[in-house]
Amino acid sequence: MIEIDGVHKSFGALHVLRGVSLKVAPGEVAVVLGPSGSGKSTLLRTVNHLEKVDAGTVAVDGELVGYRRSGDVLHELPEREILRQRTKIGFVFQNFNLFPHLTVRENVAEAPLSAQRRPKAEVAETVTRLLLRVGLADKADAYPGTLSGGQRQRVAIARALALDPKVVLFDEPTSALDPELVGEVLDVMRDLARSGTTMVVVTHEIGFAREAADTVVFLDEGRVVEHGPPGQVIDHPQHERTRAFISRVL
């Protein structure tokens, strides 16, 4: 479903991604672990072309993201095409980034209406169903400012799902939350994982990785150090750096 191949990305002199390759199968849940500054978030942001790559390719659902290939040259797609591709890729931000001037219902309905041009009645039904799913049916007409952090992030997840995406990317979805609110967001994500949604999750929640991930990827200094099932990477890491990181966060 996602194929990342030899991706490089620099910010000025800082070489953040140094040739990352990764495959995520349909229905697979991949959790990306790694120390801060290891390039986790940047990697996630290249998948929906929020960050342009310097080299390498990213493909989602068999389609090159952000570029068109002709021979050996990649041409950036026109904005309209990039936006269309993004509707297949849900993205959940660390800071939620809900639209504060729109109600919960309007937040969730916005992209299906304006980006996918789906009929109003159908979108209204989708919104109701999704808010029920994340446990916020009673908050449809509330503004994000009146919700707790955990509730906001659940709305953000509903908003990402409203596009009916092929994959959902989570960028440290619980890092901005008070500790007692982390659980409710992880519950929703666990439910998604069980229902067969293809997910890539950047997180520090080792517990979530252990029980919900099919694959755990350990990233350090812009490279994949090791990857495999959680029982292997978390419980029996092969590399010294993975071992050091796991022992620090557990």
């Binding site: 929906n48 929020l50 904005e79 309209r80 936006l83 269309r84 591709q85 993004r86 509707t87 890729i89 993205f91 931000f93 800071n95 980034n97 809900l98 639209f99 504060p100 001037h101 916005e110 992209a111 304006s114 980006a115 996918q116 908003r159 990402a160 596009l163």
Partner: peptide
Amino acid sequence: VDPGQREAAAALGIPRVRRFFRIILPQ
């Protein structure tokens, strides 16, 4: 306006003009 708002709107695939008038300008 928080740059995250632009980013979220772009990530959702909302067209540029709509992004400006519906998301950014009201804020």
